[in-house]
Simulated assay, not measured.
Amino acid sequence: MIAILPGLKTIIGAIFKSARLLMEVLLLMMFVLLIIALFGLQIFKGVLTHKCIKNLPPGINISHNDWGNYIQNKSNWLVIEDVDTMVCGNGTGTGRCPTNFTCLPGIGFNPNNGYTNFDNIGWALITAFQLITLDYWENTYNLVLRASGAFYIIFFIVVVMFGAHYIVNLVLAVVAASYEKEAKRKQEAKEEEERILELRRQKALLRVRENNLNPKERFRKCGKKLTRGFSMDSVMSWATEMAQLEDDEETDHQKKSKCYAFKKRLKRKFCSWTCCPTFLRLQEYLVMLVSHPIFEGVITICILINTLLLSIDYHQAPYSHALESGNTVSIVHDKHIINKRYVIYLQYSM
Rank of each mutant, 00 (worst) to 15 (best):
L5F: 11
G7I: 02
G7R: 10
I11D: 07
I11W: 10
I12M: 09
A14P: 02
I15P: 02
F16H: 08
L22V: 04
L22P: 00
M29H: 11
M30V: 10
F31N: 03
L34T: 02
L38H: 04
I43N: 08
K45D: 02
H50V: 05
I53Q: 02
K54P: 03
N55T: 06
L56C: 07
P58K: 11
I60K: 11
S63T: 15
H64R: 11
N65P: 01
W67F: 15
Y70N: 06
N73V: 10
N73G: 12
S75G: 13
V83Q: 14
V83F: 06
V83P: 05
T85H: 09
G89Y: 04
T92E: 14
C97S: 05
N100H: 06
F101V: 03
T102W: 03
G106R: 04
F109L: 07
P111V: 03
N112K: 15
N113I: 01
F118A: 00
F118T: 00
D119V: 01
N120D: 03
N120K: 00
L125H: 09
I126E: 08
A128E: 00
F129R: 07
L131Q: 03
L131D: 02
I132K: 03
L134D: 06
D135Y: 12
Y136I: 07
W137Q: 07
Y141T: 05
N142M: 04
L143A: 08
L143S: 09
V144H: 05
A147Q: 06
S148E: 07
A150L: 14
F151C: 03
F156Y: 05
M161V: 13
A164V: 01
H165D: 12
Y166T: 11
L172K: 14
A173G: 13
V175W: 09
Y179D: 03
K184A: 14
R185V: 06
E193D: 13
E193F: 02
R195I: 06
E198T: 06
R200G: 11
Q202V: 02
L205V: 11
L206A: 13
R207Y: 06
R209W: 09
N211A: 15
N212A: 15
N214G: 11
N214I: 04
K216V: 14
R218W: 01
F219N: 12
R220A: 12
C222M: 15
G223I: 13
K225A: 10
R228M: 14
G229C: 04
D233P: 01
M236W: 08
W238F: 10
W238H: 13
Q244F: 05
D247K: 12
D252V: 08
Q254M: 11
K255P: 00
S257P: 05
F270P: 00
F270H: 07
F270K: 09
W273D: 13
T274N: 13
P277A: 04
L280Y: 00
R281F: 09
S291L: 07
E296F: 08
G297I: 01
T300P: 02
I301L: 15
T307C: 04
L310N: 03
I312L: 05
H315N: 09
S320L: 07
H321E: 11
A322T: 07
K340E: 11
R341M: 14
R341F: 03
R341V: 12
I344R: 07
Y348E: 10
